[in-house]
Design a protein around this nucleic acid. Sequence first.
RNA 1: GGCGGGUUGGCCGAGUGGCUUAGGCAAGGGCCUGCAAAGCCCUGUACGCGGGUUCGAUUCCCGCACCCGCCUCCA
Length: 470
Amino acid sequence: MSLRLHDTATRSVRDFVPRVPGEVGIYLCGLTVQSPPHIGHLRSAVNYDVLRRWLMRSGYRVTFIRNITDVDDKVLTNSAKAGEPFWALAYSNERILSDHYSRLGVLDPTYEPRATGHITEMHDLIATLISDGHAYPAEDGSADVYFDVKSFDRYGHLSGQKPDSMQPAEDGPERAKHDPRDFALWKGAKPDEPVEAQWPSPWGRGRPGWHIECSAMCWRYLGPEFDIHGGGLDLVFPHHENEVAQSQAAGLPFARFWVHHGLLNLGGSKMSKSDGNVIDLPSIMALGVRPVELRYYLAAPQYRSVIDYSEEALREAASAYRRIENFAERASERFGAGEPGVLCAEFVEAMDDDLNTSGALGAVHDVVREGNTALAAGEDTTAQGALASVRGMLDVLGLDPLSPQWSSGGSSEGLRPVVDSLVALALEQRAAARTRKDWAAADAVRDRLKQAGVVTEDTAHGPRWTIEGR
RNA sequence: GGCGGGUUGGCCGAGUGGCUUAGGCAAGGGCCUGCAAAGCCCUGUACGCGGGUUCGAUUCCCGCACCCGCCUCCA
């Protein structure tokens, strides 16, 4: 069995067959960097990171392109409000985004192109569309260029929309459009817009329409046809519909699979900057929840399902992750971390079934239980095997507790040997007290350590300690 | 109005025409422990409502209710 993926275009789960055997090209719609990211955006990144890791683990060479849209209406609006150039605001948000991605263990993309770096490719596409009769420059001298929706009979195919039954836009048709559903490929510069957000074009100075940048970047980095295009469910229409229309009308076969992930809701509606119901990584960390625990929370449900954010569910996920982590740490203290090993069949089957991470984690927990039992029984070979397997499976999800990403305690890690020897001193005292059955003295040592944030526990192989809440 | 998705035990969340009906969190009981902690074992017994198909439906079909997303910037 091999990977089966849900494809939005056919509304079905299909066998994934790459265009070129052994190789996969993925384009993920990244962010418009109008403001810093919230955890809904991070869910998106984590979901496709899991897809990518699973493809890599399955033996594919993966080219992963995730774009940054660094110029659009909102970027301009927000930068005007902030009184800084649009590129300063965009870049500042982009850096925050990168930081949050890396804190969540999201692998760096193969390349991360920016819209503003691909104006010439957009011009090429637009010129082709105009000469083939799929686009037209506005006749009002605005320098706008519009895509002619009626000229492309498959318009609406991806999202299942029938253009004729669509609700008319509230703001009414723009005069320059032949049809209210036509969308801008190129937006002519307005008098009040900053010159640094304008580029020359054969149709006049202006900037890209919203969708054209993705068509241009897909084409540039993945070629006329590629394997997987991903993004949030809220992008299906109009963004992806318009993207596929303009690309195919320009003669590019485009994406073979459309993968869309479910959204993250807060308070009964989609987490959204414009609605103000937003939670970001810093506020999650302020709850005492670590990034790896957030990653578990975001990765555990199947990617197409809705997540209704709640702090309770987040904390439950953190507890579930700690259980796995606990096993991995105990086992590695016994006989070293080893290397990530074989995946169990249930895990593979679940992942191949449209990335059923929830089912896959069920398999992980089963192995953790077996590992714990083996550890308690002193069956070292079994326990070691369980550790390797758990690490291998968690690595696919980007959650291996012993990977360098998560295992180091950051800047304080260098202090660990120091603390270790100090705690050892205290534990010797406790051991002595226990030997003479002076339980009060033994417990006093343990209590003092607890007050200092050091949790001690007795195991079959002697006492061990951990930092409380790490 | 159009398109799509959802409703599973206290909570999160898979899944399936019956068979052993995941897994986690929380709860109760037990084992282990000097006491703990961690771990292990056991317990709860669920599939929005109403019809239909079927020997049998949580799972398939129809209807209804409610929720969410999209049709407008949005991961």
